[in-house]
Simulated scan of single mutants.
Amino acid sequence: MNYRIRPGEPLTDEVVRIAGLQYRKAIGILRSEPDGRHQAIHDARKRFKRLRGLFRLIREAAPDFYARENARIRDTASTLSAVRDATSLVEVVDRMAADREAGEDRAVLISVRDRLAARRDRIAAGQSDLGDRITAAILACEQGSAALADLRLPKGNDKAIDVLAAGAAKNYGRAVKALARARESEDPEDWHDLRKRIKYHWMHMQLLKPAWPGVMAARAEIADLAGDLLGDDHDLSVLAELIAAEPGEVGSATEIAVLRAHMHARTLRLHKEIRKILKRLLKDDAKVLRSRIAALYRDASG
């Protein structure tokens, strides 16, 4: 029940309990760095994403709290993102090189991958103030944890259920619209917006799992799969931006031409698979989802 909202329990207490645990885990990871500094940052940023997903679920009931704490978490995460972002570009080229479609271009892709890995290492070496950033992130987590004492959500089971159902349905409705926009425009920014909506839906299904464990778990699994594919797609768009801005960091003109061809082919495959997955996940109207979640939570509350 670490990331689950229990039916029938006071909503404020549940949100404070879950958020407090996420903050404590982030602080513990950043302080101890059990698997190394960069893995600690990566793991802490996962906790930050879960916090933002939780707060987005109750956003309409506590808009001021949401605006303040979401900004705190977002800004904290951004101070720790440089090396992770650079690592993501290495990983996306790794995936292309490992793909059977790489064929005789595999050596070129590996060469590009090695150049991007060297870039990542330079970025990591250049972050002489990373320890200070981690210290500041720990302080921000402590402040965020303390700020939970200010949270006030509607009392009473019916009002709490309305908050949860409305929050999940609003993000879901935005996901439906985001998919339509991305399919129409093929704009990387629209696909990135879709990624964010699907990631939030994944978190919301995890949080609401106690109301209908089997179905919520299945929806979360599908959303997680789609979110991973959308993450891969986003990394490709970021790589395209790096090629446009700093081609020398990536490779020669010939290498970049080969890389672009594989990036384009992979993007097409990813978009096809994502559309196939989300056609099932996003088939219902947002009002239907809202009514279903509310009914399930009322039943589960006894």
Rank of each mutant, 00 (worst) to 15 (best):
R4K: 13
L11Y: 12
E14H: 12
E14K: 12
V15K: 08
V16C: 12
G20H: 15
Q22R: 15
R24M: 08
R24D: 10
R24C: 01
A26F: 03
G28E: 02
R31C: 07
R31W: 07
S32E: 14
E33I: 02
G36P: 06
R37S: 04
F48I: 07
F55V: 04
E60K: 07
A62F: 05
R68K: 10
D75P: 00
A77D: 05
S78I: 10
T79F: 01
E91N: 09
E91S: 09
E101G: 09
A102Q: 06
A102C: 06
E104A: 14
A107Q: 11
L109S: 06
V112H: 05
D114M: 11
R120G: 03
R122T: 00
R122N: 07
A137P: 01
A137M: 02
A149R: 13
P154D: 09
K155Y: 01
K159A: 15
L164W: 09
A178Q: 07
R183Q: 13
S185P: 07
E189Y: 13
W191Y: 07
D193L: 15
L194G: 02
K196H: 04
I198S: 02
W202E: 10
M205V: 00
L208M: 11
K209H: 11
A211T: 05
R219W: 08
I222Y: 01
D228S: 11
L229F: 08
D233Q: 13
H234C: 00
S237N: 09
I243Q: 06
I243S: 02
I243W: 08
E246G: 01
P247W: 10
G248Q: 14
E249M: 11
V250E: 07
S252C: 06
E255S: 11
I256G: 02
A257Q: 14
H264F: 10
H264S: 15
R266M: 08
L270C: 03
K272D: 14
K272R: 15
D284E: 08
R290W: 02
R292F: 11
S301E: 03
